[in-house]
Design a protein around this nucleic acid. Structure first.
Length: 314
DNA sequence: CGCATTTGACCAGCGC
DNA sequence: GCGCTGGTCAAATGCG
């Protein structure tokens, strides 16, 4: 059930990777600065016209893509609400009867009752609702007012280990093989503990071994490690964090920055996703993915040169 | 040597 | 009360 609500659309919102936008048709510059289209030398006016036409076409494609995305989100939300309806009609059918541990149940509840994350892999997220009938039965639980969220991360199947990099630094304090899943579950504590009480559990999905399920408990009361790195002294020498970019795998895949686009277009109601740190990181990711893309730089250069030419002709 | 990770032991909750 | 299970602790180990 969880995985069904987990949308791996592989939707790459970077238009240059999602679709090359036929940039190979982009006019090329001749030796004297004039553009050559299909082997023809063009005048400045023709160049401008071609570029404007190209720009319009790109805009139109962009609009179409946006509409498609909106439609997809709406369909997804509609499907999701249908699933919610079905689940509310037949409660607890999706949970195997063998699940008796309180924490598991609360996790599952959290999983089910959140609204329309247009999905970023983050499935669960909710304050441990005190209205829950079981909260009265669990005196110990009330101490933990931690937010619980679940993040699904697709990794390479060959990739070993239970590492979900998310910008924070974690210390592993335990590993267990659980009954309902043959893969071991790793327990992590924020390395800023006890100042930061956040914990996370990471386990490969029983259904799909290439999917890691990270369950976060609590909220960080500090910036992600990546944000503090430049000023964070000489320690953490053996930190496994990628120094260039901590792969906050909040997105669907480890390597696809497209998740950032989804986050922008589909608002999640996960507080972690709404936190300024994460937002900033997502923006960085988008910027990085765009600037890394040679098509983007090429198109940008073309657009700028076109702009300059048109300005000069005026 | 200092740190993080590993891993077996221990503890607590739950069902029978 | 007992056994099962998930979660945590802490000594041992490995690594830079």
């Amino acid at each position: 059930m969880d995985t069904s609500s987990w949308v791996d659309t592989s939707l790459d919102l970077n238009p240059f990777s999602a679709r090359p936008l036929r940039l190979e048709e982009t006019p090329k510059k001749g030796p004297n600065g004039n553009l050559i289209v299909f082997g023809k030398k063009l005048s400045v006016k023709e160049e401008t016209g071609a570029l404007v036409e190209e720009l319009n076409r790109v805009n139109e494609e962009n609009k179409k893509l946006t509409e498609k995305l909106t439609a997809m989100c709406e369909n997804y939300n509609a499907l999701r609400s249908q699933v919610m309806d079905l689940m509310s009609k037949s409660p607890e059918k999706e949970i195997s009867p063998s699940k008796k541990r309180k924490s598991e149940n609360s996790d599952n509840n959290n999983n089910n009752n959140n609204g329309n994350n247009c999905n970023f892999g983050v499935v669960g997220n909710s304050e441990s609702s005190s209205t829950d009938e079981d909260s009265s039965k669990k005196p110990r639980q009330e101490i933990i007012k931690a937010k619980v969220s679940r993040v699904y991360v697709r990794t390479e199947a060959s990739e070993a280990g239970l590492v979900v990099k998310d910008g924070y630094q974690w210390r592993k304090y335990g590993q267990k093989v659980t009954r309902d899943n043959p893969s071991p579950r790793a327990y992590f504590r924020c390395s800023f503990a006890p100042i930061c009480p956040v914990k996370k559990k990471v386990q490969r999905s029983a259904d799909d071994q290439s999917v890691m399920v990270a369950t976060y408990e609590g909220e960080h009361n500090h910036l992600p490690h990546s944000h503090m790195e430049p000023t964070s002294g000489p320690s953490h020498g053996s930190s496994s964090l990628n120094p260039s970019r901590p792969t906050t795998s909040l997105g669907l895949t480890k390597s696809k920055p497209s998740g950032a686009g989804e986050a922008r277009n589909c608002r999640s109601n996960n507080p972690e996703m709404d936190s300024p740190q994460v937002r900033q990181y997502l923006v960085e990711q988008m910027a990085t993915s765009l600037t890394k893309d040679p098509n983007f730089t090429e198109a940008l250069a073309a657009a700028i040169s076109g702009r300059m030419f048109s300005a000069r002709s005026n």
